[in-house]
């Protein structure tokens, strides 16, 4: 009887200690706001070790913000219909990437009503794929309440993208993440090639599309880690034609003009360069990216 009493006290003590430690821990997290330059944090980790090599690619909104800043106008016929549904796991993964890119495009061009629809679509696809906790229902409510605020729209849509990535990483779904990111990139490029308008070798957006050769290399190397899986190897094969086009795009260094305004306090990396992206290559690229994107959205 005494032992049971002692154990009961011990259980209460341990639960109390747990709660105390957890609350202290969450407090320390909330105060890190201004410590982004700090190197010191105290964490216990349950993670598996980080891979030896990691290949990252920027989120779709990065490209859209640059394209929008260059003065490109929004086109509304470039989106995948939010009414389409997907059954197989691979089609869901690939089309989640497509919808995430569509949402980033809508948010970048401040299309509030449509953003709401596509946000719902991304959320319902996450739910369907067992990632329901990635985007909370409060996010939708927040988006609805801030329908006229561009910063909030971008903030909420971007955060939902990061949360999906985080959820997939936490649950060890790196392969799914690689597919989602790859299709998101394909959709971003599909939208980009259709927004840039008339071809000109010096068009800054056409140069930007050529420079995505670097992103594409990382994307392929990331997919390559899962090449033994059939769905991934199929996508790698599908990307071969794009790879061939990118291999033909060469780059030459551009000499800086003497009167160019350069902020000397900045650390500047690399040298200004120009991609030799001919009209024929651009047209081939546009055709291939359109074909690949249409193949993905027509999956069932």
């Amino acid at each position: 009887m005494k032992t049971i009493k002692r154990l009961t006290y011990l259980v209460i003590l341990m639960i109390f200690t747990s709660l105390l430690i957890v609350s202290c821990n969450s407090n320390s997290n909330s105060t890190v706001e201004d410590k982004t330059d700090s190197t010191e944090t105290d964490l216990l980790s349950t993670d598996e070790q980080i891979p030896d090599i990691v290949y990252q690619i920027p989120s779709p909104d990065e490209l859209f913000s640059l394209i929008k800043n260059s003065g490109c106008k929004y086109k509304d016929d470039l989106l995948n219909s939010e009414k389409t549904s997907y059954e197989s796991k691979t089609s869901q993964e690939l089309n989640l990437g497509i919808y995430a890119a569509d949402l980033a495009y809508l948010a970048s061009f401040e299309k509030f009503q449509q953003s709401l629809k596509y946000f719902s679509k991304v959320k319902s696809m996450c739910d369907q794929m067992g990632l329901s906790t990635a985007i909370g229902s409060d996010m939708y409510n927040r988006l609805e309440k801030n329908m006229s605020n561009t910063d909030s729209l971008l903030d909420i849509t971007n955060n939902s993208y990061y949360d999906i990535i985080q959820k997939l990483e936490e649950t060890g779904n790196s392969k799914s993440l690689a597919l989602i990111i790859a299709s998101g990139w394909v959709e971003s490029m599909y939208i980009a090639v259709n927004l840039v308008g008339k071809y000109s070798e010096t068009n800054e957006n056409i140069q930007r599309i050529a420079s995505q050769k670097i992103t594409f290399n990382n994307l392929l190397l990331n997919l390559d880690k899962y090449k033994d899986e059939q769905d991934v190897s199929e996508q790698i094969t599908n990307l071969t034609k794009i790879k061939n086009i990118y291999e033909q795009i060469k780059k030459e260094t551009v000499e800086q003009k003497a009167n160019t305004n350069i902020d000397t306090l900045k650390v500047v990396i690399g040298q200004k360069s120009k991609y030799i992206f001919t009209k024929d290559l651009f047209e081939s690229f546009k055709n291939e990216i359109t074909a690949l994107r249409n193949q993905i959205i027509k999956m069932s």
Binding site: Q49, D52, Y55, Q56, I57, S59, Y162, N218
Partner: peptide, 27 residues
């Protein structure tokens, strides 16, 4: 603005890792 290429991982003694990131011109 937060960049989705950010990454954190678990390290033990002797562990090394290489993170490849794309930095777009214009940012």
């Amino acid at each position: 603005k937060y960049d989705a290429q950010s990454k954190a991982g678990f390290f033990t003694a002797g562990k090394s890792s290489q993170l490849n990131i794309v930095c777009n011109e214009g940012k």
